[in-house]
Nucleic acid binder design. Structure first.
Lengths: 225, 225
DNA sequence: TAGAACTTTGCATGCCTTGCAGAAATGCGT
DNA sequence: ACGCATTTCTGCAAGGCATGCAAAGTTCTA
């Protein structure tokens, strides 16, 4: 079922319909984020966003079931890619390898959207409901990692080790993203350490932390596994 | 200003007014949880809850600003006690000591409300918005622990070590609470291991994990501290 | 180009949230 | 025991979000 009208599509969504849909989605999300940042999340109404994006209010709700979703338009996709990458790892590869790979692949996207990510952070920091949604995503990400680590370890996904490992590992995102009020010690400088992106540097340290932690529990009788 | 009419008040809120308020609050929360569990969170309306608690709908909203808050009526207090305990620890005491103490003090409360906690879990598991709120609380708890650990370590609260340590430590609550779908491997048996409550057993293992992790990073140059 | 498939839109409904003012209850001093 | 000050509860109303439905408008395919 190759589309004959479009020669070199590469890996884009293919159909014109689909591309238009993605463009609309992005337009709406951008308009929303800008308004949220300028006027505040609660102060901005959906009709206002719709007007800015030149669509009807009903369309905004169709694309984004909840108003909060407008602030995290890409999380779902990003995690989907992580899940895919984790699923696709060979027997040799550890979760850590896949994670490193995934971050490497996502980094350019994040760099590209630097301005939006900063807006997003500012907006999220003004509203507790948005923080809640953000934490929910964090939990989803941890879930993925925990399951993969559990597989590596031959343990239950609900055992202590995979859970702790996933939680500790994911903490690096909270740090670079400046998820906390004294935000962005690192976030401000998307720089490198020893020629390596900060995030990957943190990941390495996190993995060392986790490895040591897990090893220290090896002798114990498993409790929840 | 001792109240002459009530001999042995103990440590209750004192005033009759305040006690009545707490009772009303509890009545509303109980009624809500029961209805949520029976009919579903979205299916239950605030007027229904109000009727069940024998107050006006407006009063429900006065006590609980958001409908979601009805599901977590005690989290705030519990964390407040943790914060107090952490603040009150002497120079000798580590965060781990305070944490152990706090859990020990909270355990009887949790045991007392076993039925409600189970309902709460069932309800939360049916709604993503509630999961988000739950994760938000988790983040708040981690914040407290991270700050305390940072103090112990003489590091910044946004450094990697305290964040990872707090995240890993807090993971134990997700496990005993059965925060995940395959819930309650342990939750079902509020039992003990070697005569120790499961939660404290898990805490010990978590602390060992964290200690090993932190030690393994000692030689490194701090990145975010 | 015609019809199928899908998207966008407007309308209507139900619910949550919040401010406000009056009614009701409580606490306190006499 | 009584009345006043304070606090809490209640009803009303307005504003905004979420969602089902059917009509109108696009895009796709044969």
């Amino acid at each position: 079922m190759v589309n004959a009208t479009t020669p070199s599509e590469g890996f884009e969504p293919a159909g014109l319909r689909e591309r238009k849909k993605q463009r609309t989605r992005q337009t709406i999300a951008r308009a929303a984020l800008e308004l949220f940042d300028r006027d505040g999340f609660h102060e901005t109404t959906i009709p206002q966003i719709a007007a800015a994006a030149d669509v009807s209010p009903r369309t905004v709700s169709a694309y984004f079931p909840a108003k909060e979703d407008l602030v995290f338009p890409d999380q779902e996709d990003s995690f989907a890619r992580l899940a895919t990458r984790l699923r696709a790892r060979s027997g040799e590869e550890t979760t850590a390898d896949a994670l490193r790979d995934w971050i490497g692949a996502e980094l350019p996207r994040w760099a590209e959207r630097d301005a939006e990510m900063r807006m997003q952070r500012r907006v999220v920091d003004t509203d507790d409901g948005l923080k809640a949604v953000e934490q929910r995503y964090r939990a989803l990400g941890e879930e993925l990692i925990a399951a993969a680590i559990a597989e590596d370890l031959g343990a239950s996904p609900d055992a202590l080790e995979p859970r702790m490992a996933a939680a500790a590992t994911f903490a690096i995102f909270g740090i670079v993203g400046g998820e906390h009020e004294g935000k962005g010690q690192i976030a401000d400088e998307h720089g490198c350490i020893d020629g390596e992106p900060v995030l990957l540097h943190l990941l390495d340290r996190a993995l060392r932390f986790v490895d040591a932690g897990i090893r220290s529990l090896q002798g114990d009788a498993p409790v929840a596994g």
